[in-house]
Amino acid sequence: MVAPADISPTSDSQKLARARQIDARRKRNTRLYLLLPGLVIIGLFGLMPLSITLVYSFLKPGSYGGVEWVFSLDAYVQFFVERDIFDDTLSPNWAYISIFSRSIGLSFGATLGALILGFPTAYYIASKPAHQRNFWLFLITLPFWTNLLIRTYAMLIIIRDQGVINLALMNAGIIDKPISILYTDTAVFIGLIYSYLPFMVLPLYASLEKLDLRLIEAAYDLYASRFKVLTKIILPLAKPGIVAGCILVFIPGLGAYITPELLGGGKKLMIGNLIAIQFGSSRNWPFGSAAALILMAVVMLALLLYVRHGAKGARHG
């Protein structure tokens, strides 16, 4: 390009500049139109329901479901403070706190479990010759061909008292009474790991695949122990994958509905189930909306902390 200071502006160069401008605008417009379908879908089906949820959370519940258009903070107050139904004293609402902490604990445990199981798997696939990797990745994604509900029912059949595992152990004479796994927190924990393991393996694989094996060789040449190689070379390089995988497992695990419902036996609520009943028998849509938003806030806070911590780590590393 010629700098405008070099020559005096002619009508030709002005025309050229204008043509370029128009061209640039057209390109911008084309991009905008290409974006539009995505924006419309996110706007219509993402932001609009979210706004409705937000508005509903500040209203009063209608007497048979629905909302009354009266501003109220009751939904949020109810979440944190409880007026004792028997003596009217105020106290922190332990019921919801314990439901939230159970959900967070189970989801965190499942994330850790998926990481421990998923890391060697991803490492194994990444260390295979390139032409074999696709086959292994195909195996990892295979369960997704089946609906989550069906996979969870399959799990139920496998771990129940009269299920495959217990019958096999009893026939082999290892145990004489079935081990009760189903309808406990352990069952929910196993179910969550099983459901979300591929979400852990795939991002881990994506970062481990790019791992330069020569670095590991170099580390060994410099007399690094196996443990040092893992902690100083492999884990730092795999960190983006670990972070992405943990996020992808933790968040859906936190809001899980089917898994605790089917495998947990319904005796204890998780957040997803607590929210769901507000729109049914509990007839309290504002509280359901508020609980959903509080869950979102917790997730976003966790993400922000994670991202900030991750960024800091990268800077110092």
């Binding site: 139904i85 919801y96 609520l269 509990s282």
Partner: peptide, 20 residues
């Protein structure tokens, strides 16, 4: 018959306590 809102609120609290 359907219970009034006061009763439903009580029941909700009991139900959440039961399933916490």
């Amino acid at each position: 018959p359907p219970c009034n809102q006061e009763v439903v609120d009580f029941y909700n609290k009991i139900w959440t306590k039961l399933k916490q």
